[in-house]
Design a protein around this nucleic acid. Structure first.
Length: 512
RNA sequence: GGUCCCAUCGUCUAGAGGCCUAGGACACCGCCCUCUCACGGCGGAGACACCGGUUCGAAACCGGUUGGGACUGCCA
Protein backbone atom coordinates (compact mmCIF):
# COMPACT_ATOMS: atom_id res chain seq x y z
CA UNK A 1 0.00 0.00 0.00
CA UNK A 2 2.67 2.36 1.11
CA UNK A 3 4.68 1.34 -1.88
CA UNK A 4 1.77 2.04 -4.17
CA UNK A 5 1.21 5.56 -3.04
CA UNK A 6 4.93 6.13 -3.12
CA UNK A 7 5.22 4.88 -6.66
CA UNK A 8 2.18 6.86 -7.69
CA UNK A 9 3.88 9.97 -6.46
CA UNK A 10 7.04 9.17 -8.38
CA UNK A 11 5.16 8.05 -11.43
CA UNK A 12 6.22 9.66 -14.64
CA UNK A 13 3.52 11.72 -16.30
CA UNK A 14 4.09 13.03 -19.79
CA UNK A 15 1.84 14.62 -22.33
CA UNK A 16 1.45 15.36 -25.98
CA UNK A 17 -0.09 18.79 -26.29
CA UNK A 18 -0.76 19.65 -29.92
CA UNK A 19 -2.73 22.65 -31.03
CA UNK A 20 -5.50 21.62 -33.39
CA UNK A 21 -4.58 24.18 -36.00
CA UNK A 22 -3.32 21.83 -38.67
CA UNK A 23 -2.51 18.29 -39.54
CA UNK A 24 -0.64 15.76 -37.47
CA UNK A 25 2.73 15.92 -39.12
CA UNK A 26 5.96 13.98 -38.84
CA UNK A 27 7.42 16.29 -36.21
CA UNK A 28 4.33 16.11 -34.04
CA UNK A 29 4.15 12.36 -34.37
CA UNK A 30 7.76 12.03 -33.34
CA UNK A 31 7.16 14.21 -30.30
CA UNK A 32 4.15 12.10 -29.38
CA UNK A 33 6.18 8.95 -29.93
CA UNK A 34 9.01 10.02 -27.63
CA UNK A 35 6.56 10.95 -24.92
CA UNK A 36 4.70 7.69 -25.35
CA UNK A 37 7.94 5.72 -25.23
CA UNK A 38 9.03 7.43 -22.05
CA UNK A 39 5.70 6.78 -20.39
CA UNK A 40 5.66 3.13 -21.41
CA UNK A 41 9.27 2.61 -20.41
CA UNK A 42 8.82 4.08 -16.99
CA UNK A 43 5.39 2.64 -16.33
CA UNK A 44 4.12 6.18 -16.38
CA UNK A 45 1.09 7.93 -17.78
CA UNK A 46 0.79 9.44 -21.24
CA UNK A 47 -1.82 12.12 -21.54
CA UNK A 48 -3.23 14.01 -24.40
CA UNK A 49 -4.07 17.66 -24.04
CA UNK A 50 -5.40 19.71 -26.88
CA UNK A 51 -4.11 23.25 -26.75
CA UNK A 52 -6.96 24.96 -28.45
CA UNK A 53 -6.72 28.39 -26.92
CA UNK A 54 -6.09 29.93 -30.31
CA UNK A 55 -9.77 29.81 -31.08
CA UNK A 56 -9.40 31.59 -34.39
CA UNK A 57 -7.27 28.84 -35.86
CA UNK A 58 -8.40 25.73 -34.00
CA UNK A 59 -10.68 23.39 -35.89
CA UNK A 60 -12.61 20.24 -35.16
CA UNK A 61 -11.28 18.53 -38.29
CA UNK A 62 -7.75 19.14 -37.19
CA UNK A 63 -8.46 17.65 -33.78
CA UNK A 64 -10.03 14.61 -35.37
CA UNK A 65 -7.07 14.10 -37.65
CA UNK A 66 -4.66 14.29 -34.74
CA UNK A 67 -6.67 11.70 -32.82
CA UNK A 68 -6.96 9.44 -35.87
CA UNK A 69 -3.27 9.78 -36.58
CA UNK A 70 -2.18 8.86 -33.07
CA UNK A 71 -4.58 5.95 -33.02
CA UNK A 72 -3.32 4.69 -36.33
CA UNK A 73 0.28 4.95 -35.13
CA UNK A 74 -0.66 2.92 -32.10
CA UNK A 75 0.32 5.64 -29.63
CA UNK A 76 -2.40 5.07 -27.10
CA UNK A 77 -2.92 7.62 -24.39
CA UNK A 78 -4.00 7.03 -20.81
CA UNK A 79 -5.74 10.28 -20.01
CA UNK A 80 -7.57 12.82 -22.09
CA UNK A 81 -7.92 14.23 -24.57
CA UNK A 82 -8.59 17.27 -22.46
CA UNK A 83 -9.29 20.63 -23.97
CA UNK A 84 -7.18 23.47 -22.79
CA UNK A 85 -9.96 25.98 -23.29
CA UNK A 86 -11.76 24.29 -20.42
CA UNK A 87 -8.93 25.30 -18.14
CA UNK A 88 -8.98 28.96 -19.05
CA UNK A 89 -10.51 30.07 -15.75
CA UNK A 90 -7.61 28.42 -13.97
CA UNK A 91 -5.12 30.27 -16.15
CA UNK A 92 -6.79 33.59 -15.51
CA UNK A 93 -6.79 32.82 -11.83
CA UNK A 94 -3.05 32.19 -11.99
CA UNK A 95 -2.55 35.51 -13.76
CA UNK A 96 -4.52 37.27 -11.05
CA UNK A 97 -2.45 35.58 -8.43
CA UNK A 98 0.70 36.83 -10.13
CA UNK A 99 -0.79 40.29 -10.36
CA UNK A 100 -1.50 40.25 -6.64
CA UNK A 101 1.87 38.91 -5.68
CA UNK A 102 3.56 41.59 -7.73
CA UNK A 103 5.04 39.15 -10.25
CA UNK A 104 2.91 40.60 -13.00
CA UNK A 105 1.52 43.99 -13.95
CA UNK A 106 -1.00 45.61 -16.23
CA UNK A 107 0.33 47.14 -19.42
CA UNK A 108 -1.78 49.72 -21.20
CA UNK A 109 0.46 50.15 -24.22
CA UNK A 110 -1.49 49.59 -27.41
CA UNK A 111 -0.66 47.10 -30.10
CA UNK A 112 -0.08 49.97 -32.48
CA UNK A 113 2.41 51.68 -30.21
CA UNK A 114 4.33 48.46 -29.75
CA UNK A 115 4.25 47.62 -33.39
CA UNK A 116 5.70 50.94 -34.42
CA UNK A 117 8.39 50.60 -31.78
CA UNK A 118 9.15 47.14 -33.06
CA UNK A 119 9.29 48.32 -36.66
CA UNK A 120 11.62 51.15 -35.72
CA UNK A 121 13.88 48.73 -33.90
CA UNK A 122 14.04 46.40 -36.86
CA UNK A 123 14.82 49.32 -39.14
CA UNK A 124 17.65 50.50 -36.92
CA UNK A 125 18.82 46.94 -36.52
CA UNK A 126 18.65 47.04 -32.78
CA UNK A 127 17.09 44.48 -30.50
CA UNK A 128 13.49 45.17 -29.64
CA UNK A 129 12.30 44.42 -26.20
CA UNK A 130 9.34 45.93 -24.46
CA UNK A 131 10.79 48.64 -22.26
CA UNK A 132 8.54 47.90 -19.31
CA UNK A 133 7.23 51.43 -19.05
CA UNK A 134 3.88 50.37 -17.59
CA UNK A 135 5.65 48.57 -14.83
CA UNK A 136 6.31 51.82 -13.05
CA UNK A 137 2.75 53.05 -13.17
CA UNK A 138 1.55 54.05 -9.74
CA UNK A 139 -1.55 52.44 -8.25
CA UNK A 140 -3.35 55.73 -8.83
CA UNK A 141 -2.41 55.81 -12.51
CA UNK A 142 -3.52 52.24 -12.97
CA UNK A 143 -6.85 52.90 -11.27
CA UNK A 144 -7.34 55.96 -13.41
CA UNK A 145 -6.74 54.07 -16.65
CA UNK A 146 -8.98 51.24 -15.50
CA UNK A 147 -11.69 53.75 -14.69
CA UNK A 148 -11.35 55.14 -18.19
CA UNK A 149 -11.90 51.64 -19.48
CA UNK A 150 -8.53 51.49 -21.19
CA UNK A 151 -7.69 48.00 -22.43
CA UNK A 152 -4.62 46.34 -21.00
CA UNK A 153 -2.63 43.14 -21.16
CA UNK A 154 -1.01 41.45 -18.21
CA UNK A 155 2.73 41.11 -18.40
CA UNK A 156 5.06 39.05 -16.30
CA UNK A 157 7.60 41.29 -14.59
CA UNK A 158 11.01 39.73 -15.05
CA UNK A 159 13.35 40.62 -12.19
CA UNK A 160 15.57 43.47 -13.30
CA UNK A 161 18.51 42.88 -11.03
CA UNK A 162 21.44 42.80 -13.52
CA UNK A 163 22.83 39.69 -11.91
CA UNK A 164 19.56 37.80 -12.14
CA UNK A 165 19.35 34.76 -14.37
CA UNK A 166 17.13 31.70 -14.78
CA UNK A 167 18.51 28.25 -15.35
CA UNK A 168 17.17 24.77 -15.81
CA UNK A 169 18.70 21.40 -16.41
CA UNK A 170 17.56 20.03 -19.74
CA UNK A 171 17.69 16.24 -19.99
CA UNK A 172 19.03 16.55 -23.52
CA UNK A 173 20.83 19.88 -23.75
CA UNK A 174 22.19 20.07 -20.26
CA UNK A 175 22.18 23.27 -18.27
CA UNK A 176 20.45 26.12 -20.03
CA UNK A 177 20.83 29.55 -18.52
CA UNK A 178 19.34 32.85 -19.57
CA UNK A 179 20.07 36.28 -18.17
CA UNK A 180 17.09 38.15 -16.82
CA UNK A 181 18.00 41.18 -18.86
CA UNK A 182 17.62 39.14 -22.06
CA UNK A 183 14.07 38.22 -21.19
CA UNK A 184 11.30 40.59 -22.08
CA UNK A 185 8.36 41.26 -19.80
CA UNK A 186 6.20 38.81 -21.68
CA UNK A 187 2.45 38.95 -21.99
CA UNK A 188 0.49 36.30 -20.13
CA UNK A 189 -3.04 37.63 -20.60
CA UNK A 190 -4.37 39.32 -23.72
CA UNK A 191 -6.41 42.49 -23.64
CA UNK A 192 -9.54 40.40 -24.08
CA UNK A 193 -8.61 38.51 -20.94
CA UNK A 194 -7.62 35.25 -22.62
CA UNK A 195 -4.40 33.59 -21.45
CA UNK A 196 -1.40 33.00 -23.66
CA UNK A 197 0.57 29.84 -24.30
CA UNK A 198 3.42 30.43 -21.86
CA UNK A 199 1.00 30.78 -19.00
CA UNK A 200 -1.61 28.20 -20.00
CA UNK A 201 0.94 25.59 -20.84
CA UNK A 202 2.78 25.96 -17.56
CA UNK A 203 -0.37 26.05 -15.47
CA UNK A 204 -1.80 23.00 -17.20
CA UNK A 205 1.41 21.05 -16.91
CA UNK A 206 1.33 21.81 -13.22
CA UNK A 207 -2.29 20.79 -12.72
CA UNK A 208 -1.80 17.70 -14.89
CA UNK A 209 1.17 16.92 -12.63
CA UNK A 210 3.46 16.52 -15.62
CA UNK A 211 6.89 15.30 -14.59
CA UNK A 212 8.67 15.45 -17.95
CA UNK A 213 8.09 17.92 -20.73
CA UNK A 214 9.42 16.27 -23.88
CA UNK A 215 8.99 18.63 -26.81
CA UNK A 216 10.70 20.12 -29.83
CA UNK A 217 13.79 22.25 -29.37
CA UNK A 218 11.86 25.25 -30.61
CA UNK A 219 10.41 25.31 -27.12
CA UNK A 220 13.78 25.75 -25.48
CA UNK A 221 13.79 29.51 -25.98
CA UNK A 222 10.69 30.16 -23.96
CA UNK A 223 11.40 27.59 -21.29
CA UNK A 224 13.15 30.17 -19.06
CA UNK A 225 9.97 32.23 -19.16
CA UNK A 226 7.93 29.23 -18.13
CA UNK A 227 10.35 28.43 -15.35
CA UNK A 228 9.82 31.99 -14.12
CA UNK A 229 6.07 31.43 -14.13
CA UNK A 230 6.38 28.16 -12.23
CA UNK A 231 8.54 29.72 -9.58
CA UNK A 232 6.36 32.78 -9.17
CA UNK A 233 3.44 30.44 -8.68
CA UNK A 234 5.38 28.45 -6.14
CA UNK A 235 5.48 25.33 -8.30
CA UNK A 236 8.49 23.11 -8.92
CA UNK A 237 9.08 23.00 -12.68
CA UNK A 238 9.02 19.62 -14.45
CA UNK A 239 12.07 18.10 -16.07
CA UNK A 240 12.49 19.42 -19.57
CA UNK A 241 13.81 17.30 -22.44
CA UNK A 242 14.01 19.15 -25.70
CA UNK A 243 14.39 17.09 -28.82
CA UNK A 244 16.16 18.34 -31.95
CA UNK A 245 14.05 19.49 -34.82
CA UNK A 246 13.60 17.67 -38.09
CA UNK A 247 14.14 19.87 -41.11
CA UNK A 248 13.88 19.46 -44.85
CA UNK A 249 16.87 18.91 -47.11
CA UNK A 250 17.36 22.64 -47.30
CA UNK A 251 17.31 22.87 -43.53
CA UNK A 252 13.98 24.59 -43.47
CA UNK A 253 11.14 23.69 -41.16
CA UNK A 254 8.84 20.97 -42.43
CA UNK A 255 5.45 22.34 -43.33
CA UNK A 256 2.50 21.18 -45.28
CA UNK A 257 2.30 24.45 -47.11
CA UNK A 258 5.84 24.05 -48.37
CA UNK A 259 6.21 20.29 -48.76
CA UNK A 260 2.67 19.12 -49.23
CA UNK A 261 1.03 15.99 -47.91
CA UNK A 262 4.30 14.13 -47.57
CA UNK A 263 4.81 15.66 -44.12
CA UNK A 264 1.43 14.53 -42.83
CA UNK A 265 0.82 11.26 -41.06
CA UNK A 266 -2.37 10.73 -43.04
CA UNK A 267 -0.27 10.54 -46.19
CA UNK A 268 1.70 7.56 -44.91
CA UNK A 269 -1.49 5.87 -43.93
CA UNK A 270 -3.01 6.33 -47.36
CA UNK A 271 0.20 5.36 -49.10
CA UNK A 272 0.53 1.95 -47.57
CA UNK A 273 2.77 2.35 -44.56
CA UNK A 274 2.75 -0.08 -41.68
CA UNK A 275 2.23 2.27 -38.73
CA UNK A 276 4.94 0.75 -36.61
CA UNK A 277 7.43 0.95 -39.49
CA UNK A 278 6.87 4.68 -39.52
CA UNK A 279 7.26 4.91 -35.75
CA UNK A 280 10.47 2.91 -35.89
CA UNK A 281 11.84 5.20 -38.57
CA UNK A 282 10.75 8.32 -36.71
CA UNK A 283 12.34 7.11 -33.49
CA UNK A 284 15.71 7.06 -35.21
CA UNK A 285 15.46 10.70 -36.24
CA UNK A 286 17.26 12.15 -33.26
CA UNK A 287 17.72 9.09 -31.13
CA UNK A 288 19.89 6.00 -31.45
CA UNK A 289 20.25 2.91 -29.37
CA UNK A 290 23.44 2.17 -27.51
CA UNK A 291 24.08 -1.04 -29.42
CA UNK A 292 23.45 0.33 -32.90
CA UNK A 293 20.31 -1.69 -33.39
CA UNK A 294 17.80 -0.14 -35.78
CA UNK A 295 14.82 -2.43 -36.03
CA UNK A 296 12.76 -2.74 -32.89
CA UNK A 297 9.47 -4.26 -31.94
CA UNK A 298 7.39 -1.95 -29.79
CA UNK A 299 8.46 -3.79 -26.67
CA UNK A 300 12.09 -3.62 -27.66
CA UNK A 301 11.97 0.07 -28.42
CA UNK A 302 10.18 0.83 -25.17
CA UNK A 303 12.92 -1.08 -23.42
CA UNK A 304 15.79 0.56 -25.31
CA UNK A 305 14.53 4.12 -25.37
CA UNK A 306 16.30 6.61 -23.19
CA UNK A 307 16.13 10.39 -22.89
CA UNK A 308 19.87 10.57 -22.50
CA UNK A 309 20.50 9.17 -25.96
CA UNK A 310 18.52 11.87 -27.71
CA UNK A 311 20.71 13.87 -30.04
CA UNK A 312 21.34 17.57 -29.85
CA UNK A 313 21.65 18.40 -33.52
CA UNK A 314 18.78 18.78 -35.93
CA UNK A 315 18.11 15.98 -38.36
CA UNK A 316 17.03 16.19 -41.94
CA UNK A 317 14.07 14.44 -43.38
CA UNK A 318 15.56 13.37 -46.66
CA UNK A 319 12.69 14.01 -48.98
CA UNK A 320 13.45 15.14 -52.51
CA UNK A 321 10.46 16.51 -54.38
CA UNK A 322 9.85 14.93 -57.76
CA UNK A 323 11.72 11.69 -57.13
CA UNK A 324 9.21 9.03 -58.13
CA UNK A 325 11.12 6.12 -56.65
CA UNK A 326 11.94 7.85 -53.39
CA UNK A 327 8.63 9.56 -52.84
CA UNK A 328 9.56 10.01 -49.20
CA UNK A 329 12.77 9.55 -47.21
CA UNK A 330 14.38 6.42 -48.72
CA UNK A 331 15.20 5.06 -45.31
CA UNK A 332 11.55 5.29 -44.33
CA UNK A 333 10.65 3.28 -47.42
CA UNK A 334 13.34 0.77 -46.55
CA UNK A 335 11.90 0.35 -43.08
CA UNK A 336 8.43 -0.17 -44.43
CA UNK A 337 9.63 -2.66 -47.04
CA UNK A 338 11.60 -4.58 -44.46
CA UNK A 339 8.61 -4.78 -42.14
CA UNK A 340 6.38 -5.97 -44.97
CA UNK A 341 8.93 -8.58 -45.95
CA UNK A 342 9.76 -9.88 -42.49
CA UNK A 343 6.89 -9.31 -40.10
CA UNK A 344 4.85 -12.32 -39.01
CA UNK A 345 2.34 -13.10 -41.75
CA UNK A 346 -0.61 -13.10 -39.42
CA UNK A 347 0.22 -9.51 -38.50
CA UNK A 348 0.58 -8.48 -42.11
CA UNK A 349 -2.61 -10.10 -43.33
CA UNK A 350 -5.06 -7.64 -41.74
CA UNK A 351 -3.28 -4.72 -43.39
CA UNK A 352 -3.38 -6.41 -46.78
CA UNK A 353 -7.01 -7.33 -46.28
CA UNK A 354 -7.82 -3.70 -45.67
CA UNK A 355 -5.94 -2.67 -48.77
CA UNK A 356 -7.57 -5.28 -51.00
CA UNK A 357 -11.00 -4.38 -49.68
CA UNK A 358 -10.41 -0.75 -50.41
CA UNK A 359 -9.49 -1.64 -53.96
CA UNK A 360 -12.32 -4.09 -54.53
CA UNK A 361 -9.98 -7.06 -54.77
CA UNK A 362 -10.99 -8.85 -51.61
CA UNK A 363 -12.81 -12.20 -51.60
CA UNK A 364 -14.31 -13.51 -48.41
CA UNK A 365 -12.89 -16.91 -49.26
CA UNK A 366 -9.42 -15.49 -48.55
CA UNK A 367 -10.36 -15.66 -44.91
CA UNK A 368 -12.08 -19.04 -45.25
CA UNK A 369 -11.46 -21.87 -47.77
CA UNK A 370 -8.60 -20.08 -49.43
CA UNK A 371 -6.93 -18.87 -46.29
CA UNK A 372 -3.89 -21.08 -46.73
CA UNK A 373 -3.60 -20.05 -50.35
CA UNK A 374 -3.89 -16.40 -49.35
CA UNK A 375 -1.14 -16.63 -46.74
CA UNK A 376 1.11 -18.50 -49.10
CA UNK A 377 0.53 -15.98 -51.85
CA UNK A 378 1.28 -13.01 -49.65
CA UNK A 379 4.41 -14.69 -48.45
CA UNK A 380 5.47 -15.24 -52.04
CA UNK A 381 4.90 -11.71 -53.28
CA UNK A 382 5.67 -9.55 -50.27
CA UNK A 383 9.44 -9.85 -50.62
CA UNK A 384 9.48 -7.35 -53.46
CA UNK A 385 6.98 -4.86 -52.10
CA UNK A 386 7.65 -1.51 -50.49
CA UNK A 387 4.19 -0.49 -49.39
CA UNK A 388 0.80 -2.06 -48.80
CA UNK A 389 -0.32 -0.37 -52.00
CA UNK A 390 1.86 -2.78 -53.93
CA UNK A 391 -0.48 -5.62 -53.02
CA UNK A 392 -3.26 -4.04 -55.04
CA UNK A 393 -1.11 -2.72 -57.86
CA UNK A 394 1.91 -4.84 -58.55
CA UNK A 395 0.20 -7.78 -56.88
CA UNK A 396 -3.07 -7.34 -58.72
CA UNK A 397 -2.64 -10.36 -61.00
CA UNK A 398 -2.86 -12.68 -58.00
CA UNK A 399 -6.29 -11.44 -57.04
CA UNK A 400 -7.88 -10.46 -60.31
CA UNK A 401 -7.75 -11.15 -64.03
CA UNK A 402 -7.99 -7.43 -64.69
CA UNK A 403 -4.32 -6.66 -64.39
CA UNK A 404 -2.41 -4.15 -66.47
CA UNK A 405 0.19 -4.98 -69.07
CA UNK A 406 3.33 -2.91 -68.97
CA UNK A 407 4.27 -1.85 -72.44
CA UNK A 408 7.94 -2.27 -71.74
CA UNK A 409 7.48 -5.79 -70.46
CA UNK A 410 5.35 -6.83 -73.42
CA UNK A 411 7.90 -5.45 -75.81
CA UNK A 412 10.74 -7.15 -74.03
CA UNK A 413 9.25 -10.56 -73.41
CA UNK A 414 6.39 -11.10 -75.82
CA UNK A 415 7.72 -9.78 -79.08
CA UNK A 416 9.28 -12.96 -80.46
CA UNK A 417 6.91 -14.15 -83.22
CA UNK A 418 7.57 -17.77 -82.41
CA UNK A 419 5.66 -17.35 -79.14
CA UNK A 420 2.42 -17.26 -81.08
CA UNK A 421 2.87 -20.96 -81.73
CA UNK A 422 4.67 -21.90 -78.55
CA UNK A 423 2.42 -20.43 -75.89
CA UNK A 424 -0.85 -22.19 -76.82
CA UNK A 425 0.95 -25.47 -77.05
CA UNK A 426 2.60 -24.86 -73.72
CA UNK A 427 -0.80 -24.10 -72.27
CA UNK A 428 -2.05 -27.47 -73.46
CA UNK A 429 0.84 -29.25 -71.83
CA UNK A 430 0.35 -27.40 -68.58
CA UNK A 431 -3.33 -28.17 -68.64
CA UNK A 432 -2.53 -31.84 -68.96
CA UNK A 433 -0.53 -31.85 -65.74
CA UNK A 434 -2.21 -33.93 -63.04
CA UNK A 435 -0.37 -32.05 -60.31
CA UNK A 436 -0.01 -28.34 -60.94
CA UNK A 437 2.95 -27.79 -58.67
CA UNK A 438 6.45 -26.41 -58.93
CA UNK A 439 8.60 -29.34 -60.12
CA UNK A 440 6.28 -30.84 -62.73
CA UNK A 441 5.63 -27.34 -64.07
CA UNK A 442 9.32 -26.74 -64.39
CA UNK A 443 9.76 -30.09 -66.13
CA UNK A 444 7.15 -29.10 -68.70
CA UNK A 445 8.97 -25.84 -69.42
CA UNK A 446 12.42 -27.39 -69.65
CA UNK A 447 11.45 -30.34 -71.77
CA UNK A 448 9.26 -28.28 -74.06
CA UNK A 449 12.06 -25.75 -74.54
CA UNK A 450 14.46 -28.59 -75.36
CA UNK A 451 12.09 -30.11 -77.84
CA UNK A 452 11.54 -26.82 -79.57
CA UNK A 453 15.19 -25.85 -79.46
CA UNK A 454 14.57 -22.59 -77.66
CA UNK A 455 16.05 -21.34 -74.44
CA UNK A 456 13.94 -22.01 -71.38
CA UNK A 457 14.41 -18.37 -70.50
CA UNK A 458 12.44 -17.32 -73.55
CA UNK A 459 9.41 -19.25 -72.36
CA UNK A 460 9.87 -18.35 -68.74
CA UNK A 461 10.03 -14.63 -69.32
CA UNK A 462 7.23 -14.69 -71.87
CA UNK A 463 4.93 -16.57 -69.54
CA UNK A 464 5.74 -14.31 -66.63
CA UNK A 465 4.68 -11.32 -68.63
CA UNK A 466 1.67 -13.11 -70.04
CA UNK A 467 0.27 -14.11 -66.65
CA UNK A 468 1.25 -11.01 -64.68
CA UNK A 469 1.68 -8.18 -67.14
CA UNK A 470 5.16 -7.34 -65.93
CA UNK A 471 8.70 -8.54 -66.39
CA UNK A 472 9.52 -8.84 -62.72
CA UNK A 473 8.25 -11.00 -59.93
CA UNK A 474 8.81 -14.19 -58.00
CA UNK A 475 10.34 -17.31 -59.49
CA UNK A 476 8.03 -18.32 -62.31
CA UNK A 477 7.24 -21.86 -61.26
CA UNK A 478 6.16 -20.94 -57.77
CA UNK A 479 4.26 -18.09 -59.26
CA UNK A 480 2.35 -20.39 -61.62
CA UNK A 481 1.65 -22.85 -58.86
CA UNK A 482 0.20 -20.04 -56.77
CA UNK A 483 -1.86 -18.68 -59.62
CA UNK A 484 -3.28 -22.13 -60.28
CA UNK A 485 -3.77 -24.10 -63.41
CA UNK A 486 -7.04 -22.55 -64.49
CA UNK A 487 -5.80 -18.97 -64.43
CA UNK A 488 -2.48 -19.80 -66.02
CA UNK A 489 -3.97 -21.75 -68.88
CA UNK A 490 -6.67 -19.24 -69.66
CA UNK A 491 -4.27 -16.33 -69.45
CA UNK A 492 -1.88 -18.04 -71.81
CA UNK A 493 -4.65 -18.80 -74.26
CA UNK A 494 -5.99 -15.32 -74.05
CA UNK A 495 -2.66 -13.71 -74.69
CA UNK A 496 -2.81 -14.02 -78.45
CA UNK A 497 -3.82 -10.48 -79.29
CA UNK A 498 -1.00 -9.02 -77.26
CA UNK A 499 1.71 -11.07 -78.81
CA UNK A 500 3.54 -9.43 -81.67
CA UNK A 501 3.06 -6.23 -83.56
CA UNK A 502 3.04 -8.32 -86.73
CA UNK A 503 0.25 -10.48 -85.45
CA UNK A 504 -1.68 -7.44 -84.32
CA UNK A 505 -1.48 -5.95 -87.78
CA UNK A 506 -2.67 -9.21 -89.33
CA UNK A 507 -5.68 -9.34 -87.12
CA UNK A 508 -6.53 -5.78 -87.89
CA UNK A 509 -6.22 -6.53 -91.58
CA UNK A 510 -8.62 -9.43 -91.22
CA UNK A 511 -11.12 -7.46 -89.24
CA UNK A 512 -10.81 -4.46 -91.55
C1' G B 1 20.02 43.15 -35.42
C1' G B 2 19.76 40.62 -30.35
C1' U B 3 19.65 36.03 -27.27
C1' C B 4 20.37 30.96 -27.39
C1' C B 5 21.45 26.20 -29.68
C1' C B 6 23.98 22.98 -33.15
C1' A B 7 28.23 21.19 -36.44
C1' U B 8 31.17 13.25 -38.26
C1' C B 9 30.04 10.11 -45.31
C1' G B 10 24.48 12.75 -49.87
C1' U B 11 20.90 11.30 -45.50
C1' C B 12 20.12 8.92 -40.32
C1' U B 13 23.93 8.11 -36.96
C1' A B 14 28.25 5.51 -33.54
C1' G B 15 32.03 8.09 -31.07
C1' A B 16 32.47 10.57 -23.25
C1' G B 17 41.33 11.98 -25.09
C1' G B 18 44.81 6.69 -27.06
C1' C B 19 40.21 0.73 -28.89
C1' C B 20 39.60 5.57 -35.15
C1' U B 21 44.59 4.45 -41.29
C1' A B 22 36.65 7.04 -37.87
C1' G B 23 32.17 2.01 -37.16
C1' G B 24 26.94 0.92 -38.66
C1' A B 25 22.26 1.91 -41.57
C1' C B 26 19.81 4.03 -46.06
C1' A B 27 20.87 5.52 -50.90
C1' C B 28 24.64 4.70 -54.91
C1' C B 29 28.29 1.48 -57.83
C1' G B 30 30.57 -3.46 -58.94
C1' C B 31 30.72 -8.83 -58.41
C1' C B 32 28.28 -13.42 -56.85
C1' C B 33 23.50 -15.99 -56.67
C1' U B 34 19.79 -16.36 -60.93
C1' C B 35 14.27 -17.55 -65.44
C1' U B 36 13.31 -11.63 -64.35
C1' C B 37 13.11 -8.41 -60.22
C1' A B 38 13.89 -8.33 -55.27
C1' C B 39 16.20 -10.72 -51.03
C1' G B 40 20.92 -12.44 -49.51
C1' G B 41 26.45 -12.63 -49.70
C1' C B 42 31.02 -10.16 -50.91
C1' G B 43 33.47 -5.72 -52.31
C1' G B 44 33.75 -0.23 -53.63
C1' A B 45 33.25 4.98 -53.43
C1' G B 46 31.92 8.40 -49.51
C1' A B 47 32.68 12.44 -43.56
C1' C B 48 35.42 14.47 -38.40
C1' A B 49 33.46 22.68 -41.54
C1' C B 50 37.97 25.90 -40.79
C1' C B 51 41.92 28.10 -37.71
C1' G B 52 44.35 28.24 -33.27
C1' G B 53 45.17 26.32 -28.26
C1' U B 54 45.46 22.38 -24.16
C1' U B 55 47.91 17.48 -24.20
C1' C B 56 53.02 12.74 -24.97
C1' G B 57 48.40 12.03 -27.86
C1' A B 58 42.22 15.31 -30.08
C1' A B 59 36.66 13.70 -34.16
C1' A B 60 36.34 14.09 -28.88
C1' C B 61 38.45 19.40 -24.33
C1' C B 62 38.94 25.13 -24.76
C1' G B 63 38.78 29.71 -27.83
C1' G B 64 37.80 32.00 -32.38
C1' U B 65 35.97 31.89 -37.48
C1' U B 66 32.45 30.09 -40.81
C1' G B 67 27.97 27.71 -41.72
C1' G B 68 23.10 26.18 -40.19
C1' G B 69 18.90 26.40 -36.90
C1' A B 70 15.51 28.20 -32.97
C1' C B 71 13.46 32.24 -30.52
C1' U B 72 12.76 37.41 -30.92
C1' G B 73 3.62 37.71 -31.56
C1' C B 74 -1.97 40.38 -27.38
C1' C B 75 0.38 32.22 -32.28
C1' A B 76 1.10 27.56 -30.07
Amino acid sequence: MNNDSQSRQDQVRVRFAPSPTGYLHLGGARTALYNWLWARKTGGVFLLRIEDTDTERSTQESLQEILDGLTWLGLDWDEGPSLQTENVPRHVEAAEKLLKSGHAYRCFCTKEELESQRAAAVENKVAFMYDGRCRNLSDGEVQEKLALGMPYVVRFGVPRDPSFSVAFEDAVYGRVEKKGQDIEDFVILRSDGRPLYILSNAVDDASDRITHVIRGADGIANTPKQVLVYRALGITPPTFAHMPLTLDNKKAKLSKRKHGEVVTIAYYRSHGFIPWALCNFLALLGWSSADGKEFFTREELVEAFDLQRINRSNSIFNYVPGDAKNWTDPKAIHFNATYIRTMPLEELVPYVEEELKAEGLWQDSYAADERDWFFKTLDLIRARFHTLKDFSTRGRCYFSDAYEFEEKAVKKNLSDPILGDLLPELADRLEALPQFVHDPIEDVFRSYADRKGVKAGLLINAVRTAVSGTSVGPGLFEMLETLGKGRVVSRLRGIGDRLTPAKLENEEAVTG
